[in-house]
Structure formats: structure tokens, C-alpha cells
Design a binder for these strands. Sequence first.
RNA 1: GCCGCGGUGGUGGAAUUGGCAGACACGCAGGACUUAAAAUCCUGUGGCCUCAAAAGCCAUGAGGGUUCGAGUCCCUCCCGCGGCACCA
Length: 800
Amino acid sequence: MKYNFSKIEKKWQKYWEKHKLFEAKDFSKKPKYYCLIEFPYPSGDGLHVGHTRSYTAMDIIARKRRMEGYNVLFPIGWDAFGLPTENYAIKTGIHPKIVTKKNTNKFRKQLKSLGFSFDWKREINTSDPDYYKWTQWIFLQFFKHGLAYKSKIPINWCPSCKIGLANEEVINNKCERCGTPTTKKEKEQWLLAITKYAEKLLQGLENIDYLEKIKIQQRNWIGKSEGTLVKFPIADSQKILEVFTTRIDTIFGCTYMVVAPEHQIINDLKSNIINFEEVEKYIEEAKQKSDLQRTELNKEKTGIELKGVKAINPFTKKQIPVFIADYVLANYGTGAVMAVPAHDIRDWDFAKKYNLPIIESIKGGDVSKQAFTEDGILVNSGEFTGLTSKQARQKMTEWLEKNNLGGRMIQYHLRDWIFSRQHYWGEPIPMVNCEKCGWVPVPEKELPVKLPNVKNYKPTDSGESPLAAIDWWVNSKCPKCKGPAKRETDTMPNWAGSSWYFLRYIDPKNKKQLADNKKLKYWMPVDWYNGGMEHTTLHLLYSRFWNQFLYDIKAVPTPEPYKKRTSHGMILGADGEKMSKSRGNVVNPDDVVKQYGADTYRLYQMFMGPFDQATPWDTKGIEGAKRFNNKIWLIGQIKISKKSQNKELEKLLHKTIKKVSEDIETMSFNTAVAALMIFINECYAQKEVPQKIWEDFLKILSPFAPHLSEELWQKLGKKKSICLEQWPKYNKSLIQEGNFTLVIQINGKTRDTLLAPINITQDLVLELALKQENIKKYIPDKSAIKKIIFVPNKLINIVI
RNA sequence: GCCGCGGUGGUGGAAUUGGCAGACACGCAGGACUUAAAAUCCUGUGGCCUCAAAAGCCAUGAGGGUUCGAGUCCCUCCCGCGGCACCA
């Protein structure tokens, strides 16, 4: 009688696999539905409870869609290239391929033990040469379309790992992997010109169903701002300093300029700078600092005047000093700013410190006390005096255009994507460097460029990839002139493989294309993609970029890859802190499944709190899910009756169907489970539960607790899987109540309630209300009533 | 410093979007069953007041405001979490 979950769960997992219940069918006549979860990185630690919560959620949606008659694609794979595996290889000498195989085996077993309805036939692995052949192919298309280029840029450098890091890989001024503080280094890197897609990425957001906060975050990250480019001539020189500003209206108050320490102009004007030694020293110091350190210096701004260099304000024609300061970043905008202390807080602080003039050019504040940063009416601005800021921006920009000193400019915060890594465990970049021809792409028919075996996975001390040490591999022939050439030894970042994996699921074995066109047309776009907020500005934006590019070259049929995007909250440790090994608050899914079974685990994860918010793990809380599970089992064993009827229970069933159906769509899984619990509590109180009612309940339970539902379904004598059943529809007329509880308020405070028939009129309500004992106390006679607010089928509020 | 998300009983959290605050669950207390424990079942469970109940009052981070009515809307502030690129 006792529910033997481990036996029963295994039984049904085998059954599903044997009967291929979750295999998606290409070109089925049913409408298609593509559910996507973020595929895991198979780390050595195994599956995390954070994974399973979001996978359970999407599994519920996938199972519901199948029952609603959709041909569902719910695939799984491995984002297998990455640093932890490489670090592990460095430590142990075991090949990353072997480590990955071991880890994916473990993950696969774990995922299967939870009963997820993945289509395992479409399993992919980004480190598989048959997969990364196409990652390389896409890179070649980027190159051929001028969107992949090499550039010498200041990059974050980890002196310990001896690799270049993208900004997003530097956490708190330290290397993401080893914690060593990073410095700057000039390095030739491959970049992808994502900025060329800034406008498209922005526009694309208009017509897709992403959570608003996700759109906001992407928009902020892309950071479009419309403003003005201004050219400041340098006195006694042919050079000019270009500046981008959104506040051209304040330019008459521009009393100095600031350039980034890395700015080219410093070298160009080297001979003019009197205090070059001092300047050089400052530049060296800035190199040691990360962007974040520069940020921390916020309170105490530093800078050095470039003595001997004067810029000319194109409007006032006055000569103004030029400073270098590390709070201006070289890789944003033009790397130089015009400083208007009267109307910018940061410039005001800087001007006070270095005793620079503060000239008001917008009326409205007291600039001797603080910067006035709002729009207003221009003063001290020559022919522009008296205009509003808005008018002035227009007129002044036109003036600049006329005089060839600048003009309208759109600036994006988004930066091009640094695409090279000096690692072993990544996709080799399929390029060859020929002395005569320069960078030449490897011919497509020679793809994939396979990762060769190496003995040492550590980057060389010069910062080159470990691949650089393999002469036979590096030395190659130029595909163009057949002369001697060297292979690119950098590999791609771990985001490469994940930028297009959703396409490969559609046709995972295709040898000729990344995926068959007709299949792509059938399945794309992804209908619902759920993932973490932390991927919003990296993976999510990158994959949108790749898909948009592939669309432009006609390799995929839709401009946007994902129709709908939602996000999940983190599972915190029992202490309310982020789960981490060092805190010792990590919960292992295996332990929970072993002790409670997959269904209880699934139910608890859905019940523990709102899906989109962080919730702490509660070891006690899972007991509730277990009791719920046991109650269902018990009812299924002893209370089901073919003959009996129960109108009230039927009503509750239909309410529950409605609630659960709607809550799944809004990912309000916690309240959906609560509704199921309410229903079960009611059943539990009954002597008998009519089988018809029970059948529908099992159907709506099945996405949450699939094994238990199958078992109880079979107990009813059913021959086919409950997965093949139709999702029940609720009966509207059964849900409508004849009576409702009407709230009687006096001066907005609830004083009594009344059971009233639906659609009762105000007059009748008032009459009934005044008869209530409690109300009589407050309203001795009708003349005391000043006002009545009546909300039909809800409440009456009597103001006295 | 900036951006985003939050703050509701002892705990996780509900609240049809401005209409009975605390659904559901955990925990706790009392009781039943048991030699006993576990499991299970029943009852109670925001605070104050009360022997108890009814009634009343207070209560959704703090303080104001709008409204017949505010957890929900507006303003000011405090705290927690996550992200960050002083973005000109």
C-alpha cells in the first residue's frame, strides 16, 4: 500500500522512453510548440537545484502543451566548452574530453531521474566536432561579411591565468576564474561587431514577448543616446579632439576638456606636452587600475593637466586646458569629454578641486553652490542666449554641421564583443595568417578545424593559447596562395556554442548544414524560452545577435530567435544566502530524490515560492509536499468510486482546472500547487471520490507529478499513458456561484458580511444591510447616511 | 554612484490588480491513536484587550498624501538582494 516511489518512478521513466512519448516529430500536422531551457554546463559538481527548478517549470509547460494537442520540441544538450573543465585538466592532466564525458553522463542520469520529458534523441554537445564545425562556419560568415575583425585594443589581462578577459569576465576587478587582480594589456584580438546590430537588437525588442524587466535591461545595456559630435581644434596644431555630448546646449560653459589616459592624442602631441613625465607616470598608474577601481576613486577625482596643450571651444573660440583623468574611459565614445562644471556634477567636483572656472550657461540654479543639471533657458551663450535647452541642441548642432565642426551623432553603450580566448578547451578559430595574404579563412569544406591533442593545457607565459606550442598544427598552408602560413591559436569564448544551439536541436545530425531549411521553417522561432536574469545582457543578447545575422544571410527563417522569454529566481540556501560550496549550504538534488522521490521534489520546487523570485530552500517545507503526495496516493487507493456522484466536488474540480490551467501560463506554479492541495484536502474529507472527477484531477496533476499520475491512471484500468490524454477544460456554468459573500463597509471599514444572490441590486443590498444587527449599531436611522458606494457582486460601503 | 528586483504572522508565501489582509504549506500548542515513540488524524494558531467569547482596536519596512476604501496608486526616507561600464 505504501507508495514505493523509487520503483514506480523508474518504471514510468522506462515506459516513456520505450514508447518514445516525448520525441518531437518534424513536420507533424499538429501545431508545433518549441520549449527551451538554458542547457547546462556539465560541471564536475553535478546538477544544481537551481537547474532543476527551472527545468521542472518548463517541463510542466511542455507536458501541458502536449496534452493540449501540440507537437512539442523540448530538447536538451550540453554547453560543454568552458573554463572549469580546462582548469580541472590543468590540475589533473586528464583530457577535457574525458572529463566532459564523465560529467555529461552524470548529468544525464540526474536529469532522467527527475522525469523531465526531454527529447533525448536530439541531445547535442557544443564540444562535439560535428557541432562546432557549424560554430566555426558561422564565424566564417561573420568574417566574410566584415563583422569579425582583428584589432589591437587595451584588454583586461590576468597575470596569473595569462589570458585576456572580456569585461564581463572580470568580477570586482579580479579575474573571474582565479581571483587575481587584473591589469591592462594591448593584445590583438578577434572581435565581433555586435555594435553594427545595436539598432536591430533594439528594434527587435518591440515585437517580442519578453518580460519587461528583461527588455529594460537589454535596452540599458545597448544604451542608445542621441547627441552631438563636436570637434575641438587643438591650438597651434593640426589635431582635433572629438567629443560626444548629449548636452551641446551647455557648451558655452565648457571650460576644460578631459581625455582618457589611453587616448591617442597624448602620443600625437607628445612633443607639445611640457610635463610629459608626470603625464606618463599617471598613465602607468591608470593601467594598473581596472574600470572598477577607477569607479571607486569617484569621491577623490584625479587628473593631470596636459601642460602646453590647449583646445579651442568652437563656440566661444576661447582656449581651454586639457586634462587626462582615469574616470574617462578610452573604450567608450570618443574617449574624451567636454567638461561643463556648471551643469555636470562630476565636472563641478573636478573643477572645484583643480580650481577651474565655472561658467553658467543654463539659467535655473546657483552654480557657485552646485551643478545645475536640468534643462532650462540659455544664458551667456552668444547668439543662442534665450533659447530653451531643447531648441539650442537643435540649433547648435546645425551650426556645427554648417561649420564642419561636428553634427548629429547616435552613440551606443554597447561595445564590440571580444571573441578571442587564449584557452585550449574552446572552438578553434578557423583562420590562417599568411605573410602575403594576411588573415585568410579556412575553406568551409575543411571544417571543422579540430582541436589537436596537447600535453599541457596551460596557456604559454606570453599569453598565447596552449595550441601555439604545437608546431605541426600551427604551421599550415595559405588556402589562397599555398604559401607558408600559421593557424590562429586562439579559441572562441564559451558563449559561441550557446549562441545558436537552439537551431541545432532542430536538426542535430545534419552534416551538410547547421540545420535543414524546411525543418528550421517548421520549428522556429522558439515559442517559450526560460532562463536566468544573469544571462540577459550576455547570452540572451549574443544569441539574438547571431540569429539576426544568420537571418540577414538567409541561413535562418526568423529575425528573432525567441518569441517569449521569462526568467526564474534563484534557489538560496536554507540560510537565505546564495548556495555555494564554501558556505556549505548546497542542496544536492540526488539526495532529495533518493529520500523523497522525483514527484515530491518537483512539487516542492514549484510550491516553495514565486517562480520568478529568489526563495530559500527549506528542508522542512518539503515534508508538506511529501504529505500531499501521500494523500493523493491514499485517495487513489481507497476512495475512488465508479458509481458515486458529487456536485460540490465537481464544482471545485472545475475551479481547480481553471486555476491550474491559468497559473501554469503565468508561471504562478506555487498557487497552482496550492489549488491542487485544496482540491485534495476536500477529496480527503469525502468518503468517496467519483472516478470521472478523479480522472480529470490526475490529468491536471500529471505535469507536476508525472510518475504518480501515471501509476494512479493505470490503477483505474487505463491502458495508455496519461500523457496522451487531453488537457481538461473547465465548465463555466459550474464555476459560477449563485451566491456570494457581500461585504458591508461603514466608512470604508468592514462591519459585516452577507450571503447574497449574484446580481443583487443596490437598493436591495442596502435594505438587507440595514437589517443586520451589527450595522444597526452604527446606523440607527437612514438619515445618517451621507453617501453609498456600491460595487456590484462585491461590496457596499455606507458613508455616515 | 547608477540600474533592476524586493521588504506582508514564528517561517515560505496568498491576495481575481484599488474592495473581507494572511489562501496554501511549514512550524508550534492542545487532543486522539500507541506501553511509548514515529507516522497519521482532529482542533487551535498575527498582535492588543478578555477567564473565555462577542464586539472593538492595532497591523503589510518608516513617515506623509490621494481615495468612500491602499499591501496595491503618488511623494520622501530606511533596509536587503542582484547587476554594473563614473556612459558624458
